[in-house]
Design a protein around this nucleic acid. Structure first.
Lengths: 150, 150
DNA sequence: CCTGAAATCCGCTTATG
DNA sequence: CATAAGCGGATTTCAGG
């Protein structure tokens, strides 16, 4: 489905989306047009979904990253609870999970005070939510992309 | 520290890092050179750290996303355990957390079989690890960036 | 499917207000 | 600090092998 050249392109662009097609082409002995064609193909296959700027949350004042495990009162409450979580911009990821929690979310806030406010004023009042458990990330030593090469 | 224009630039590029400076400039009634200057400034401030291609893990065959809470035998084991986790390409995030786990990781694997193999052959044999608990993400209804606008 | 060349557009720098 | 102009280089298209 994808060959070595496709993999190399993904590796290069996952590391730095601004790597020029010309440079990738040179490194692999093909023409820039080929890189363009391959990227377009992977885009149409749904492999490549876009390119995003990466920002440093701390530099923007978001000093606190944490995960919150949520237990719902009833399993059927999921759609409604999700809609309310969606309205909170602090929530950057939500997962419907197996295990001890029903929903598992990742949030960024500017301070512990903001976290407390978010939990008490925004999340715990959601009717469908029975209990929450918070894991604060003190440090994030690994953050990287899927390794395509394998 | 950052004004409305900076925010607008971040919003545009967080959504699509390939949005041209010319287009952002037009939408806000300034010159492309201004966008360039602002982006450079935010880069030097450490706010912008780069740009990454976004890929669809499923389209690459990574059908299973999960979180693994890790309990270490002793708190001091953290550096050594981390080094060994770093060597596993399936691990895309690691957090040192408060709460019931010492280390909390996010992994992508191609199948449940691969997850089992990763857990039994790679993670649980790490000496410093006392116990693990796995949360499999059945669905990820929210995935977005920090909301700069506030 | 890849290429090479042509055309367009963009990023970046410099000089200026 | 923003701008306009110009250069260099990139992306993109397309005809052809």
């Amino acid at each position: 489905m994808i060959d070595n050249l496709d993999q190399a392109i993904l590796d290069a662009l996952l590391l730095n989306a601004r790597t020029s097609y010309a440079e990738i082409a040179k490194q692999h002995g093909v023409s820039p047009a080929t890189i363009h064609v391959r990227v377009e193909k992977m885009r149409q296959q749904g492999i490549i979904t876009g390119a995003k700027l990466t920002v440093n949350p701390r530099a923007l004042g978001f000093d606190v990253c944490c995960f919150i495990g949520i237990t719902l009162a009833r399993a059927g409450d999921y759609p409604s609870a999700l809609k309310q979580l969606q309205a909170l911009p602090e929530v950057v990821e939500a997962h419907y999970t197996t295990g001890q929690y029903s929903v598992f979310i990742k949030v960024f806030v500017k301070s512990i005070d903001d976290l407390q406010h978010l939990l008490i004023e925004k999340i715990q009042p959601i009717d469908e939510i029975q209990a929450t458990e918070t894991l604060i990330s003190l440090q994030q030593p690994i953050l990287r992309d899927i390794s395509v090469a394998q």
